[in-house]
């Protein structure tokens, strides 16, 4: 019983130069916002960018970017719709934003199915918005997207950073490249996790202060790009080589 979809995945991704998974051990740290705005920033710089929301049970990148009314074109596979020059793929096209509870194998089957039929064609960057935790999505991305690199997002909280250390350890063990760690929602009262990253062998990319204005900009990309959050993220993007 051979699954022909597996072999198709490498063909579908053959023209994608860089795959970047935005991940964390914990939820609520800002992965989806980083993923969405990272895609906007790279696209604005002139790169060909794709964004895939892998948080199948709680997708939110479409809400952050204000994407609605789109559906993939069916043409010898499926062509992701383009939104502000970003090729965008999400389970919401198919789940119609209804609740979708998936057990492990069902997640993997959905993941494989979408990858096997989605024709990204030429991309400089494919950004993956990962669900929280070190689970099926992380393992499947590592298994089926061998050239993936990780950007890890944490808050300054020890609750977040303790799980991030486990994620870093897992990726290092599997010899998966980690671009680095972004400390999000930084406030003056919190200590810096930058110093602690040396011991877990991951580069500190920078910090993004807590931005109370961000929430009201969700759904409007022009406003999103004027936020302090976006400016700080762009500084980080300019500093790193991806």
């Amino acid at each position: 019983m051979l699954d022909p979809r597996i072999k198709a995945i490498e063909h579908r991704l053959s023209q994608v130069k860089n795959i970047i998974a935005v991940s964390s051990g914990k939820g609520g740290v800002g992965k989806s916002v980083v993923s969405s705005i990272l895609a906007l920033i790279l696209s604005k710089k002139g790169y060909k960018v794709g964004l895939m929301d892998l948080d199948f049970t709680s997708p939110s990148t479409h809400l952050i970017l204000g994407i609605k009314g789109l559906f993939p074109e069916e043409k010898e596979g499926i062509i992701p719709p383009t939104f502000e020059d970003i090729k965008f793929m999400s389970i919401v096209y198919f789940s119609k934003d209804k609740a979708l509870s998936l057990r492990g194998q069902d997640f993997s089957d959905s993941f494989i199915e979408i990858l096997a039929i989605t024709k990204w064609n030429k991309l400089d960057y494919l950004i993956l918005d990962m669900p929280p935790g070190i689970n099926d999505a992380t393992l499947d991305v590592i298994r089926y997207m061998r050239k993936v690199k990780f950007i890890i997002v944490t808050t300054p909280s020890i609750l977040s950073f303790s799980t991030v250390k486990k994620l870093i350890d897992t990726l290092n063990t599997l010899k998966i490249e980690i671009i680095g760690v972004i400390e999000n929602m930084k406030s003056d009262q919190t200590y810096s996790i930058g110093e602690e990253l040396g011991e877990v062998k991951a580069k500190f990319l920078g910090e993004i202060p807590f931005d109370p204005e961000l929430e009201k900009c969700f759904g409007n990309t022009k406003m999103l790009l004027t936020t302090k959050f976006s400016r700080e993220l762009e500084k980080i993007v300019n500093e790193i080589r991806m």
Binding site: I91, Y93, F94, S95, K98, L100, L102, R103, E113, I114
Partner: peptide, 26 residues
């Protein structure tokens, strides 16, 4: 519309189909 969604990604059946006996989507 639902049939089309399941055609593309069969697992989204969990969003639309319920057990005819007890109503669960698991």
């Amino acid at each position: 519309e639902v049939a089309e969604a399941i055609h593309f990604v069969p697992e989204v059946a969990h969003s639309f189909i319920k057990c005819p006996n007890c109503g669960a989507q698991d």
